[in-house]
Design a protein around this nucleic acid. Sequence first.
DNA 1: TTTAAACATTGATCTCGATCAAGGCGCGTT
DNA 2: AACGCGCCTTGATCGAGATCAATGTTTAAA
Lengths: 249, 249
Amino acid sequence: MLQAPVIMQDHERCADCPIRHRAVCAYCEPPELVKLDAIKSYKTYKAGETIAWAGEPMDVIGSVVSGVATLSRTMADGRRQMVGLLLPSDFIGRPGRPTVSFDVVAANEVRICRFKASEFEALVTRMPALERRLLEMTLDDLDAARDWMLLLGRKTAREKIASLLAILARRDANLTQQTVADGLVFSLPLTREAMADYLGLTIETVSRQISALKKAGVIVLEDSRHVRVPDFVALLDEAGDDSDGGMVS
Amino acid sequence: MLQAPVIMQDHERCADCPIRHRAVCAYCEPPELVKLDAIKSYKTYKAGETIAWAGEPMDVIGSVVSGVATLSRTMADGRRQMVGLLLPSDFIGRPGRPTVSFDVVAANEVRICRFKASEFEALVTRMPALERRLLEMTLDDLDAARDWMLLLGRKTAREKIASLLAILARRDANLTQQTVADGLVFSLPLTREAMADYLGLTIETVSRQISALKKAGVIVLEDSRHVRVPDFVALLDEAGDDSDGGMVS
DNA sequence: TTTAAACATTGATCTCGATCAAGGCGCGTT
DNA sequence: AACGCGCCTTGATCGAGATCAATGTTTAAA
């Protein structure tokens, strides 16, 4: 969620701030920026570690610096559905809300830059542009959630896998500034189980469909965690998407 | 989406405004309120009529006064997934976004109170509390979308139907101030087809599962569009939800 | 290097919901 | 009343993905 199209590397001072990408770097005044710097802190979570449980009070907001975190809802009998995937530069937090409404778990080793929620909220009231930015980010999340709903409700297993791979490939290409022409190569930051939770499938089906895409030549598996996409358009075609969704071209 | 817990009937002047429920009534200053009144307009759409197509520029924002509207995404081959359900008092619009990203369709006769987007935006910049309110509403939508994702990805057909009925029953009870003890009665504002699009099912499965819940005594069908729920807790149980989700008790 | 545990793949079978098909019901029109 | 049309229900069958089961692979600890 909440992906910044390009990371701004010319703002070293706030390089890891949860809001750096457009809000602070674009709008904030230097005095406020100093305050942001003074109250931020870092924390690293190991793979599988729970960052926050559903229902817990959420006293920090932040953003992913490196690694991958997941948001998921679980039913009483253990069925689980991922409802958010947080990659580097994504924002974590629900401004103005006292509790988390889903489990936040580290998919692999995750480094997070955090603010105390109360201090962040105070800052927001003094910086109207920040509030605007938060609204914009939440709308991005909502759009992503709605695409995700189409995937869960109407796509076949094969389309689901292709869609997920396309999303991960796009994110990776943005971060590394690759172009499509090179033939994308990227790593899968999720286990088969996490992919299954993302897609509303079982791990067996995930595995089978990845094999099928491999057999069809749409992807090449360097190993079980590294994928090469020779032709990105072919992958999008498998995903059933009708647009290229803003790929770096 | 964006449900107001109780409609404020003591603010006649802005009774139909897209933002009446908490933002204007709670925060706005009288001079601004007058301006809101001056620029609002009404429009009624017939059942099945498309209010806006995906990709179109969206020059109005507004809210549902009566009737039901749906947001849905469609794939190239016609598969459709509903991604938003707008009941009376719900907000329509993506503040700051130039286009709609899904089809907006009237499920039955819908009356909408509208602002020109540009005028509304201008107002927002002068009323910081309004921006805060929009953020809050968008977060509500995001929470709803995430619950919906759990439904689509992991619930059985029967649980899906029960969940939808529970949502509609709750909304109806809130509007009419019924209590659970009475044994809820409410009308289904959606056709079987719309329910199927909501739930990621086919109309046949929707029909069958409604029949099954009827046979099990969880619901009573007065006719195909009116439902009685003798025991709301039993319905929630069928839905697989672990919380009562804020029912009026 | 061996071992154990987590993760991934593949096969065989089953099941829930989709699909195909036929009728029924409600309602407005002629 | 008869007709047509949209909507809903029910039955029969099919198939995609789940489930059950076995085996292979990677990783890291001993």
